[in-house]
Nucleic acid binder design. Structure first.
Length: 432
RNA sequence: UCCUCGGUAGCUCAAUGGUAGAGCACCCGGCUGUUAACCGGGUUGUUGUAGGUUCGAGCCCUACCCGAGGAGCCA
């Protein structure tokens, strides 16, 4: 009797007859012998069909199976060092669900335009399989981490009434007779939730209508935003370090095969252990001074090339803290030790991915915050509810935002964040 | 928004201003250990669009469209 199972569980079935339900990933034929690389979503396995073993009828049914033909195979599981993955199926029976011809994405080279236009099919390739499973692992690790740490998931709304920091980067949508905007950050709502639940996180999609065309940008991406009552900047940095180490460890434990498919240098991930280097803005400036090719001027925010110079000094994520308050958001608390600086931190990932986390301790004083809103020429009415948080039981607090796709791109070692999103949205691309 | 590069077969690319090509995919045949299999044969074109220069334009010129990389801004 044949047991229905999945490719990832084959190790439990060596020596028995199993049924696998999947798709033809690739096929080679040598006369009276077919090699079918079958994929079922959980993995890939080589299936060998001998004409003598299955008879003429089944053998010929498998003769002209194109890539991505859907197929149910029955066969004996063998440990086989010659086969990719270490296991092999000696096929004893087969049922072709659909015979396919002309699947567009062949095992040869393709360009990004073609692949992105065929994203719905590209997801079936081995590389995308590995990437999406790593993405899943990162998401699961994040949620497990927060659950273990006693955080409550309180999601922020996607429709928002107004800009939270500026207006130029928002997508405007019709909201009945009014206008609304797609959220660019759930943080302000996160602060309200932290005052209600203590330690919270929100995790959902975020939208930026900036006309960015770089390998680090999407118009829609997922952002994790923890917010912690009674947290200082040091607490926020410690928390970011704990989270990143937990996520890296989880990916190394649970997605090693996928990292190998991507030919990721695993030794680089194994170095991601505490403590991470912490660098003040002024100390980062000292590094940039040694690089005449940098156009950085003291007082500016760091540009992408500057971030690369700084992060290349280290083989771990770098935390750069206490930027000049002029280049940071209105809600960040200023450093009592140096009022020209904001109590903020950016975490720069290694290997040129850039900023994966931006966070801060928030200004908790009502009058100071009102003054900041006025300085930034923001309409106070829009922030009335936010100011209430400082009227009723205000406490020191802080949090950060982590870009999921940038984090996945870094861990998986891929060049472009678009591959870290199942259906990436970019300035010139909204299909499929 | 700005700068740079590109658009030729289903895909990846080639083609001094002079008949539009190759590899892969696909189709037919061969092969009992292939890993992007291999070997033999075959099919495949509005050269992004619209003008212009020229005896003649895939190639030169102008405008536009589409895409990629980067800057700025950000995660």
């Amino acid at each position: 009797m044949s047991t229905v199972t999945t490719i990832e569980k084959l190790a439990l079935h060596v020596g028995t007859n199993v049924t696998l339900r999947g798709w033809v990933h690739n096929k080679n034929s040598k006369g009276k012998l077919h090699f079918i690389q079958l994929r079922d979503g959980t993995g890939f396995v080589q299936c060998v069909v001998f004409k003598g073993a299955v008879g003429d009828e089944i053998f010929h049914a498998l003769d002209h199976l194109g890539q991505e033909s859907s197929l149910i195979l029955e066969g004996d599981v063998k440990a086989e060092p010659r086969a990719p993955g270490g296991f092999e199926i000696s096929v004893t029976g087969a049922q072709v669900v659909q015979k396919v011809e002309g699947f567009p994405i062949t095992p040869k080279e393709h360009g990004p335009d073609f692949l992105l236009s065929n994203r719905h099919l590209w997801l079936r390739s081995k590389r995308q399989w590995a990437l999406m499973r790593i993405r899943d692992c990162v998401i699961t690790a994040i949620r497990r981490f927060y659950d273990e740490q006693g955080f409550v998931c309180i999601d922020s709304p996607v429709f928002t009434p107004a800009a939270c920091e500026g207006t130029s980067t928002l997508f405007e949508v019709q909201y009945f007779d009014d206008k609304a905007y797609l959220t660019q950050s759930g943080q302000l709502y996160g602060e309200a939730s932290a005052m209600a639940f203590g330690k919270i996180y929100c995790f959902g999609p975020t939208f930026r209508s900036e006309k960015s065309k770089t390998r680090r940008h999407l118009t829609e991406f997922w952002m994790l935003e923890p917010e912690i009552a009674y947290a200082t900047l040091d607490d926020v940095m410690q928390h970011a370090e704990d989270l990143l180490c937990y996520v890296v460890k989880s990916v190394l434990e649970r997605r090693r095969t996928e990292l190998e498919v991507l030919e990721r240098d695993i030794s680089k991930l194994e170095k991601i252990v505490p403590p991470f280097p912490r660098l003040s803005y002024d100390e980062a400036y000292e590094i940039l001074k040694e690089h005449p090719e940098s156009t950085f001027k003291y007082g500016d925010d760091f540009g992408a090339p500057d971030e690369t110079i700084i992060s290349k000094r280290f083989d771990k994520p770098v935390m750069v803290h206490r930027y000049p308050h002029e280049v940071k958001a209105f809600y960040m608390k200023r450093d009592p030790a140096d009022p020209r600086k904001a109590l903020c931190v950016d975490v720069l990932a290694p290997e040129g991915i850039g900023e994966i986390i931006g966070g801060s301790q928030r200004e908790e004083d009502l009058e100071t915050l009102r003054a900041r809103i006025a300085e930034h020429k923001l309409p106070e009415e829009a922030f009335a509810w936010y100011l209430d948080l400082r009227r009723y039981g205000t406490v020191p607090h802080g949090g950060f935002g982590l870009g999921l796709e940038r984090t996945v791109a870094w861990l998986a070692g891929v060049e472009h964040v678009r591959e870290a999103s199942p259906f990436p949205r970019m300035m010139y691309r909204i299909y499929p």
